[in-house]
Amino acid sequence: MNILTVLARATDNADQFEVYWANGVQKQGLLRVNVPSHGTDKDVIAELGALHHLLVVKGIFGQDRAGRAAQKQGAGIIHDEDADRVQLHVTSGQIKKLMQQKSKKLHLSPYSFFLATRFAGSNISVSHDRQWIKPRALENVEEVTVGPALDDLMDVPGVGLAAVSVHAIEQIQRRGNGLSLAEAWHQIRRVVRTLDYEVAVSDEKRRRDIDRHGYSGRYLYSTLTEWNVIVAPAKGLDRAVPVIATAYFERRPQTELVRIVKVAA
């Protein structure tokens, strides 16, 4: 059941919030979310941190789930769009605005980018009802600390989990002539899923990358889409995981390509 309900509330500690959650009717839990040194709107950041933990980190609807399934086409086939959508019930109206890109609080964008892209197709409503919370929620308690941003993650062939950068999504949008953020997310996911080769980059190119960026990433290629993806090392950007730094369209000759070796699970 793709329904997630959360209820955030403050505690005596100004840097910690409690977020109760339920997936459907039976599965419930409590997240104690720490938001140190984040200035204003800590309550919103805490609730976003809880949603990120449940939707992206834990993947309660599946590690590859988006707010709405990619559009399917077929003669004579009618799809129930609402049946494909994730249903989110949240506490803060600001979260709905952030997901719909209607918020004026731009400082919250690094925390809500995963909602505005991957989960943009979700149905979202705001509620302060707490009658659904059951005692069993206290049997499933976790503690989460929110960092400077909440990354969306994709499984990159030959690399493993990597964060999706804003720049990579924007590149897909630009090439797609006005794709929405949600459409661009689906497109980059398709590209990443089909990456099957690594580009053999010259030592000279590596040195230029290091001089310019401070690191040299991995150049990956999809023969199906003819898109290139550059994955920056985690240390290069001082991140916990590698980062899908950019994506661009360029046909590569077979002589430049080396088959990607799958990372063992």
Results as ranks from 00 to 15, higher is better:
114 F>S: 06
102 K>C: 01
93 G>M: 10
111 Y>G: 03
99 M>N: 03
76 G>H: 11
55 L>T: 04
89 H>W: 14
80 D>P: 04
87 Q>N: 07
114 F>Y: 15
69 A>M: 01
78 I>Q: 15
96 K>I: 14
84 D>H: 12
97 K>P: 06
119 F>M: 01
76 G>A: 11
68 R>A: 08
91 T>E: 02
78 I>A: 14
108 L>P: 06
100 Q>T: 13
78 I>C: 08
68 R>Y: 07
98 L>H: 06
66 A>R: 12
104 K>W: 08
81 E>H: 07
117 T>K: 09
62 G>H: 01
95 I>S: 11
80 D>W: 14
117 T>S: 12
119 F>K: 02
93 G>I: 15
93 G>N: 09
111 Y>W: 00
59 G>Y: 13
107 H>I: 01
57 V>L: 13
89 H>C: 13
60 I>S: 10
92 S>R: 15
63 Q>L: 14
113 F>M: 11
115 L>M: 09
103 S>Q: 05
56 V>N: 10
110 P>D: 04
80 D>H: 14
83 A>T: 02
58 K>Q: 14
101 Q>H: 11
99 M>R: 10
64 D>R: 15
119 F>R: 01
103 S>N: 07
82 D>N: 11
65 R>S: 05
72 K>N: 04
60 I>Y: 11
59 G>W: 13
77 I>H: 11
106 L>K: 10
93 G>Q: 09
102 K>G: 05
56 V>E: 12
59 G>H: 05
93 G>H: 13
112 S>V: 05
80 D>N: 14
106 L>M: 11
83 A>V: 03
118 R>I: 02
108 L>V: 13
79 H>P: 06
56 V>Q: 09
66 A>C: 12
100 Q>W: 02
120 A>F: 09
102 K>Q: 09
113 F>Y: 09
87 Q>A: 04
65 R>G: 01
104 K>V: 13
101 Q>M: 13
59 G>V: 15
76 G>E: 11
75 A>I: 15
102 K>A: 04
65 R>K: 11
115 L>H: 03
107 H>V: 00
111 Y>K: 00
92 S>L: 12
114 F>V: 10
108 L>E: 01
92 S>H: 15
61 F>G: 12
116 A>D: 00
109 S>Q: 04
111 Y>R: 00
